[in-house]
Amino acid sequence: MALTALQVKNAKPGDKLTDGGGLRLDVDRNGNRAWVFRYTSPVTSKERYAGLGSAGDVSLAQARDAAQEARALIRKGLDPIEHRKEQRQAAKVEASRSITFKAYAEQFISGREVGWRNDKHRQQWRNSLRDYAYPVIGHLAVAEVDTAAVLKVLRPIWSALPETARRVRGRIEAILNSAKAEGLRTGENPALWRGHLDQVGLAKRRKSDVKHHPALPYAEMPQFWKSLVTDTSDTARMLRWIVLTACRFNEARDMDGAEVSGDLWTVPAIRMKAERPHVVPLTPLAIAQLPFRPVSDVSLSSCIKRHTATPATTHGMRSTFRDWAGDCTSFPRDVAEAALAHVVGDETEAAYRRSTALAKRRELMAAWANYCTKDSVNVR
């Protein structure tokens, strides 16, 4: 039997009043009245309940109209709830066409830079996008940035400024991922590297183009450490941290104390060259170097020169570690490569190795600390 407006008005807590055709008025224990459409999904054949609004806002006649529209969708083989979700998503994407890539990128950075400890890191994000991305795609709607647009940003700088180009690509990818998560984009990320941009002619650097950083021969490391350990400056503490963890300069420079938990240091993906989190097992000696005030790479280079006459760089300390691991230990190659956060094999294989090699990497880093400090008295 069809409901009347008076019945709707006088409905009591706990009532479930049927109007017919799947339309029902439900009243909760607090007296709140809501329209519900009960139906069997033509897609899943399961019973579902679609809310049609509060009876205070939607009249009986309006609820009947909404139920009628839902029944029409079902006759077409569409699920009313899913259809409504798709409409809302489409409306959101349409609204995003008024949000430019530049406007969204600035919003993205502002929302995350509070967690970026280093001012230089903030500056690099803004400056790289300002100089290379915004002039090309800044005016485009965030929903309309496609592969062709990303390539238009990257191709002019890919060979001339390879490191800058890599970082710009990663930043564009992060921004577009966020936009998709907020429902402002659909589809695959056009700035994705693996399986996408790596297939469209952006050549990798040839080995002959790679310039190697001068590295301290590992045979000289114990003597170098013996001198370095007498230096109690923040610069020396940071350098000892880099040596003991085999990390990159920027990973140490931008480190936040919250990244260290117990004897593990988790470097977030945003600071990693491979753009995925890296877990570093810490020896007691490495932990003893904390905290330190981050300094520039120039300061670290000066510190190296104070403690050895051999030409060497901060980044070269990673090569020192790798040469020692290969020549002086029996640890498998993939364990040493994992310690350096190098990509070995495909993505699945690399993920497996990261998860299984941690115990072995603990042993490797402990052996490295023992080698560096032999015949030394360490200052903690």
Score class of each variant (00 low, 15 high):
A5K: 13
K9E: 10
D15N: 13
G21W: 07
A34T: 15
R38H: 14
T40M: 13
T44C: 09
R48E: 08
R48Y: 11
A50S: 11
G51T: 09
D57Q: 14
A61M: 11
D65M: 12
R75G: 00
P80K: 00
I81A: 10
E82C: 02
K85E: 13
E86S: 12
A90Y: 01
A91E: 15
E94A: 15
S98Y: 10
T100S: 14
E106R: 12
F108Y: 15
G111Y: 02
V114M: 06
V136E: 08
I137W: 08
A141Y: 09
A165I: 11
R167V: 08
V168S: 01
A179G: 01
L184V: 04
P190V: 03
P190E: 03
H196D: 05
H196Q: 04
L197E: 05
L197W: 07
D198Y: 01
R205P: 12
K211F: 00
P214D: 10
M221D: 00
P222N: 04
S227R: 15
V229N: 07
T232A: 12
M238L: 01
R240P: 00
E259L: 04
D263Q: 13
L282E: 05
F292Y: 15
P294K: 04
H307G: 01
P311L: 10
P311F: 05
A312W: 02
R318E: 01
R322Q: 03
A325F: 05
G326I: 04
C328R: 14
F331P: 05
F331A: 03
P332D: 07
V344A: 09
R361E: 03
A367C: 11
